[in-house]
């Protein structure tokens, strides 16, 4: 009880420590890498969303980021298409 009311310290790193408590360091690394990868996915979706015909952000600024995500774009687009195929099949 007393523990729950205590404010969580350390932001995301604090949360992270709670989750990974008890994991082997190998598992922890994998967890971090995986979380990071799904965030990358989200990040590209937000910044480059108009690739899918959804203009989410001011294009002038998303172009500015384009060079840095160029290698990810192809892989990302394939993944988006794949996920869409799956939902199409399910729906």
């Amino acid at each position: 009880m007393a523990d729950e009311t205590k404010p969580k310290k350390g932001g995301i790193l604090g949360v992270f420590k709670d989750i990974v408590y008890g994991m082997s360091s190998h598992e922890m690394t994998r967890y971090a890498v995986r979380s990071r990868a799904s965030m990358e996915h989200l990040f590209i979706l937000i910044t480059m969303g108009d690739l899918l015909g959804v203009p989410i952000l001011p294009p002038y600024y998303s172009l500015r980021l384009l060079p840095y995500v160029t290698p990810q774009i192809s892989a990302w687009k394939r993944r988006m298409l794949r996920e869409r195929d799956i939902t199409d099949v399910l729906g």
Binding site: G11, L13, T29, M39, L42, F43
Partner: peptide, 27 residues
């Protein structure tokens, strides 16, 4: 709108950075 948008994206990116940090420390 731009103001709100850019603040959110930057925060997301900073979080991503923290995960990198963790992975790097583990390794």
């Amino acid at each position: 709108v731009y103001d709100e948008w850019i603040n959110k994206i930057t925060r997301l990116r900073e979080e991503m950075r923290q995960y990198d940090q963790v992975a790097a420390t583990m390794r």
